[in-house]
Design a binder for these strands. Structure first.
Lengths: 214, 214
DNA sequence: GTCTATAGTCTGATAGAC
DNA sequence: GTCTATCAGACTATAGAC
């Protein structure tokens, strides 16, 4: 769901005016970058979205690059925090399957609800200057480690056939989830319903469960 | 400098010098746009990749926008043609499952082999100016119709459980395939092996086939 | 068909007033 | 903290030589 206020330690609640403004800038930047790409988004667009002039951005960020890096930082940070929180919030005996399901649902929700920042982060990775990209990829890898563990556990529990390459499985799931940023439109299906279908086809296959289970 | 029009349906073999150069420009543009985004790729980069100066591009294309649109045209065109060809080439009694499998394999091959043009097309859609995007989305929808039919046939044949939304299924498959453009690196696994895993997890589920079948 | 040169535009970033 | 004003640099697109 939304941010479980507890596990949100990484993203402090905006309190000082400076923090509020900074947050507004990042929100505006996420939207602008997502829609126009890294080079296509003008600082004046970003500033306008935050209700200020372009020059004023430099009080909060040293440069365009510093801004985009702060944005991408927050993107992975928020997503990983939400996924970990969702897993931690599962009732006591959570199977590998339960944890994987929770991760899939939560990641998708972050993509389509916190639409701009999560999906902007993903798209920006291949557009930003190389040094920024390197660091961003490093953070993405750290998040990927969480998924590697989830999938390894699921395989050990017999939920994943042993002949599949787990990297391919992982990237396919991420692709299916991240792709939703490009086609999801509020109104038709709820994010929860979409997540349910992706979970079903991922965990049980297109044909459906073979035996009885949840 | 637009295409002469008529029988350009299937990427004619470059014959005249003009065609060869045009092809080189499109190849270079695909790589540049894929790596830097629509606004980030400079015409001088594209020209350099084609072995010429920036100003010379204008003999072949009227503008930056005309160039990117020609590129995106070719991207979907090539992919759809390849998928249709693969399906048509299947041995006589091709089941819905066989056709779907062929489509998945071929689409992935187009993404990771013809790497630049297919994946550039996908990424560019949300970065180009709106009129170009509208037309590109129209062409994508036409290609999507092919997949809708494949999936509808598969469901009618009992290969897909009836409680899944076919749009979600379709977009999840496309996401898993298109995502490979971002992580595939030649050398580790062959594209064929990756395709095989994606086909397996898509058609049979992560847990594996329930009963005996191919 | 391609080159060189340049006109014209846009934008990231800085400086100083308030 | 934000604004206005501005500069320096980069880029698209054009024009004319070859």
């Amino acid at each position: 769901m939304k941010q479980p206020s507890s596990a949100r330690a990484a993203t402090p609640e905006p309190q000082r005016k400076s923090d509020i403004t900074r947050q507004a800038i990042l929100d505006s930047a996420a939207r602008a970058f997502r829609l126009s790409g890294y080079s296509g988004a003008r600082l004046s667009d970003i500033a306008a979205g935050a209700g200020m002039q372009a020059g004023s951005l430099y009080y909060h960020f040293d440069s365009r690059e510093a801004l985009v890096e702060a944005l991408m930082d927050r993107g992975v940070e928020q997503t990983e925090a939400a996924v970990r929180a969702a897993i931690a919030a599962l009732p006591a005996p959570a199977s590998a399957r339960d944890r994987l399901r929770a991760a899939i649902e939560t990641h998708l929700l972050m993509i389509v609800q916190q639409e701009d920042i999560a999906s902007a982060t993903i798209k920006l990775i291949w557009q930003v200057p190389q040094p920024i990209r390197e660091r961003a990829l490093g953070r993405q890898r750290a998040y990927g480690a969480l998924w590697r563990k989830l999938l390894a556990d699921a395989r050990d529990a017999g939920e994943i056939r042993s002949d599949l390459d787990l990297s391919v499985v992982r990237m396919s799931i991420m692709g299916a989830l991240n792709w939703a940023a490009d086609w999801y439109k509020p109104g038709k299906m709820t994010p929860e319903a979409i997540a349910a279908d992706i979970v079903a086809m991922t965990l049980e296959g297109l044909r459906g469960p073979c035996k009885g289970e949840g």
